[in-house]
Design a protein around this nucleic acid. Structure first.
Lengths: 197, 197
DNA sequence: CTTTTTCTAGTACAGCCGTGCTACGAAAAG
DNA sequence: CTTTTCGTAGCACGGCTGTACTAGAAAAAG
């Protein structure tokens, strides 16, 4: 067989090109032409890997989810349960350039859902994963068995974190995010304190 | 002078056409042609009122904010402060078709921000208004003077409500939103209970 | 009536879009 | 070597885009 490229690497390269364009020029500027140029390949090569624009966007969304998920899984254990929970929650907030870009991409792709229905499914699946994670964090902090209250607390944590994430995204890149991380820490502290009751 | 139309009514008519297209086919389908057709006018007439696409989108966003704002201002007083606060917060959640559509429009227009910078300004202004509203609700519930803790509680309420709003939006239109309204009510109850401490 | 101005209707243009398609080069397999 | 296959390069097509422009209909003002 003839020369072969690393398809996975090529796909990632193109997905990252999508991300850059979304962040810099918005989802409206994402076309097969702009993405190919941004990735430094010709349109024919892009279409050799992603035959349609929809497949390109779907993969870009999935890879963004995967990257974020990997970052959370890589969270190092901490001695203090509260500190460990806080580290996980921090990964759900757009505090670093990477996670900030991922959230921008996330919102942009959501706007594209009506055109590319699978994006809605990817979003729902990722939302569910974050919700499960939040519930696990509550379980971990309170050391309670998973009951109705745990689920409610998990859902609240999820809503709070997503709301904070959104608000952080709409403030300047260099603004101080302490108010948000403080609120998150407060919530986790409150959850941990309620473990005995 | 010659025949004149009600420009404000025409603008509203066109903005509502934008909303319908955003909800049904996404922001990507919003063009001067599709909007004109949806509104039942020809492109020339649309451009007579909105010379550019950007102006059309800006007005659509502003009108959506205005409509939501008016709905909140029209909230009838209730005997119970908690009930009154709850009624206001309910208006911030996408529970009715109208408010649901507004939130979808909101997210869609955000995705256009890089192309139409003024949309970002409109978003920031509206966010600030909601934040002020949340702080006022906290003040009202706790009957405390506005101090650091009031501001933090207000920001927390804002984040929680926006997070719930987003999660409600991503669940089916006919799903039961009780879990979200219950969480909101719980939060308000907690705030009211903390008024004496 | 005529004049004046607003609004409608439609054409035209340059440009980008996704996608289909062909032609060619490079490298592994025989 | 030749053959076979993958990847690259790029052209072409129909369609949609925002915007500029003209021509005429409609109605108020004189």
């Amino acid at each position: 067989m003839p020369r072969t490229i690393d398809r996975d690497a090529r796909k990632a390269q193109l997905a990252e090109a999508v991300w850059r364009i979304v962040v810099e020029r918005g989802i409206g500027a994402v076309s097969v032409r702009t993405v190919a140029e941004q990735a430094g390949v010709v349109v024919g090569s892009l279409r050799h890997v992603f035959p349609t624009r929809a497949e390109l966007l779907e993969f870009s969304a999935e890879l963004a989810v995967e990257r974020a998920s990997a970052r959370i899984r890589a969270t190092p254990q901490a001695d203090d349960p509260l500190e460990y929970a806080f580290r996980i929650v921090r990964h759900l907030l757009p505090l670093e350039p990477d996670s900030r870009a991922e959230l921008e991409i996330w919102i942009a792709l959501l706007a594209e859902s009506p055109v590319v229905p699978r994006l809605a499914a990817i979003r729902d699946e990722a939302n569910q994963q974050v919700e499960d994670l939040c519930i696990q964090v509550v379980e971990f902090l309170t050391a309670r068995p998973r009951d109705e209250r745990t689920l409610a607390d998990g859902r609240r944590l999820h809503a709070l974190v997503d709301g904070l994430a959104f608000h952080l995204l709409t403030q300047p890149r260099d603004a101080d995010p302490a108010w948000a991380t403080d609120l998150a820490r407060e919530e986790l502290t409150r959850l941990a304190a309620a473990s005995s009751s």
